[in-house]
Design a protein around this nucleic acid. Structure first.
Lengths: 227, 227, 227, 227
DNA sequence: CATGAATGAGGCTTCATTCAT
DNA sequence: GATGAATGAAGCCTCATTCAT
């Protein structure tokens, strides 16, 4: 019990630090983030931050892991509430889930996309040896490895189910349909971010209108027998 | 004239430095790039780099400007060779141009997307004052400002032409069509980059096949009367 | 308390660094002083110097503050030991105190005179913004602001007392008497410094003899009813 | 003749550069002055500045030389117009001359006082070897050496004349009288400079009033038989 | 003689990381 | 387990000086 209590306290502190980390990372980017500032924001000392996360990169990984976890949770929840509905609806709901997720936690979606891109977006490429030794063997790195493919599997699974239940008429490979759909969604998010995440109109187009159109396009795609 | 000769020599040296800069930026990212290394790569001294570009950020801006220029050039060339063809074909050719551009100069497309996002991706947000004073008043920053909207204008223009000449049947606002199409294209590029820019298959899908499908989807979209 | 101990240790280290700083500043001047060298002299790392004083200018200010403190202490001590003696004697003793101070800590007197003159003597004027933001808001700058006028007040106070008690016969404004006397004293110090601080004769005049004459002149001035 | 013309042109250009140099040195101090800026201010290239003055220090020396020359000129002129008047009046006039000089060219008086103090106030002490080899052997350095003692000689000479002609009653060594008087004058200037060179009141004392008092004090000193 | 591009040593400052308490 | 003082490698940028044209 005392062990449990202590573990919980530990988790709590860890979570607290990750909270601060993602706030700062989101605000100023990886390179401009100072461990000092994270510590201050979390109300602990720098030493404590290093007790839980032994490098800055590892802490960034922890944020990545959390982002993926959150995304996965959201996607699974959506899938579960659409279990008895046609695959098509499930897939579109998943797209909407991702859009919601990106809108709500836009930094998380950035982090997830940046993930395979670590060398350039973070400091990780600094020293090839460190990249390999320190980071890749960090717990969070491996955890991220483990769950990074879940979204793909889940979504292609639902596409396949849609094909099976006849709600999806487009008979191209589910993976292809996934990639095209996800590309369109990711592009939507990227353009929005690039435009400055808080505008509700871009080139005189209302963002909600754009988003709705995007979903209609995805539906049309999945229903198309000619593409 | 000797002045012309000197100006040319100057431009040449400047271009040479930008060459090196984009190589290094592309390889290791803004934060990990050392001015020293750019200088070495360009075969000049650090001082010379600073003689032409007085800050690292300014040099990055010069790269951005070049990227935009190159993209614009490519788009305009495509538009010009499609002047007498239906708008629909021109628009699709523009999409392909962007895809080619991103494949050939993938770092350029990154830079262009990062542009509005400077604070986090570069060091620019470090010191609000410097951001405002040094960068925003840099020649390149202003030049970038000037040309950043050309692609949008060009493409929406071609979409409008397609609507006029009857080759595009989708009568939604050209800007909306532009955004959806461009989002899909950008997402394609992003997913490819994220996956590691040199793979020719992703989730067992051949990239060329994916790309072809994307273009077919865009064509279908522009021809759709129901979306 | 351990806190007290830690604070003391901290003060000690700070004082140690200031010790080194003033040694180097005195030896080679502000511009030629390297933080590195101060650190080495203090037996700490460069980082430690910056931990305590976040800019070179701030460190210089700390030296200035100490100089003023020391001068004030000396002047107050002199004033206190002359409380029961005539104002005239007190004022002359204060002059001698300043002369002693300048002889013993000649760099301190330089620093004090340079204080209002920061722009040119130090680097402070380099960047107007930094001057305003970094320096003026430094703790030491404000501390210096606070105590810079104490000497004037103390001395004019003693002159006024001398007038009251009849030991000073010159009835011009105490501030005027102060300025003339202090000018003479400061000039004495300056000429000595300019001549190279370690000579005991200047233009064949023995420095001690000069100094004695100066004090006699001040006494005569304060006793004069005709000036 | 053509040689003369060329020499003149050369002198003109040199003088022009010194003009700019003293402007900048005065404004921002030696350390903060950039050769570039002097060149720009003078309307010539950096190379040209180096053609005439091969180091920054040498240029500073040229300014020092000019300052001394100007001061000497002024003092000699005063002495000459007082040739037939009592020595006392001549000495006081010389004091006033120096005060005028400092008020008009306050930077010159700084430069002159700094002269023996080069190590700390300039960069000259940087490298002992350079100090000796480059600077001390510079033409201007030697020229400065030659004329630095003229003021002392001139003034002590006039004091001696005053003693001889009976206008000065104080029979202390002329050199001592010179030092005390000059110290008072220098101190006056220093305190004014330190207070910010453009105020016309200091501690509620009108500067002109202070100055007048100073002259009266000097006169009294020279007339005193008791000091 | 004049120019201004080029050099590179040098200095200030930052900040991830360590470690004694 | 925490703390925060200490470290020092690293990097941006400056600027006196040189030199080819």
């Amino acid at each position: 019990m005392s062990t449990n209590g202590s573990n919980q306290r530990r988790s709590l502190k860890e979570a607290n630090i990750i909270d601060s980390a993602e706030r700062i990372f989101a605000a100023v980017g990886f390179a401009n983030t100072k461990m000092e500032e994270i510590a201050r924001d979390a109300g602990v000392s720098k030493g404590t931050v290093y007790f839980y996360f032994d490098t800055k990169e590892n802490l960034y990984m922890a944020v990545t892991y959390r982002a993926l976890q959150l995304l996965n949770d959201a996607l699974y929840r959506t899938r579960d509430t659409h279990k008895s509905r046609p695959g098509l609806e499930s897939v579109l709901a998943l797209a909407e889930t991702y859009l919601d997720f990106s809108a709500k936690y836009f930094f998380y979606s950035e982090v997830i996309l940046d993930y395979m891109n670590l060398n350039r977006s973070t400091q990780l490429g600094k020293d090839r040896a460190r990249m390999t030794d320190a980071i890749k063997e960090s717990m969070y790195y491996r955890m991220v490895q483990d769950i990074q493919n879940l979204p793909v599997k889940l979504i292609t699974g639902e596409i396949a189910r849609g094909v099976d239940d006849g709600s999806i008429l487009n008979h191209n490979k589910p993976e292809l349909l996934y990639l095209v759909a996800w590309g369109a969604v990711v592009g939507f998010v990227k353009l929005n971010v690039a435009a400055g995440s808080f505008r509700d109109t871009l080139h005189h187009v209302n963002v909600q209108e754009w988003r709705d159109y995007l979903i209609r396009l995805l539906r049309a795609d999945l229903l198309s027998t000619e593409l």
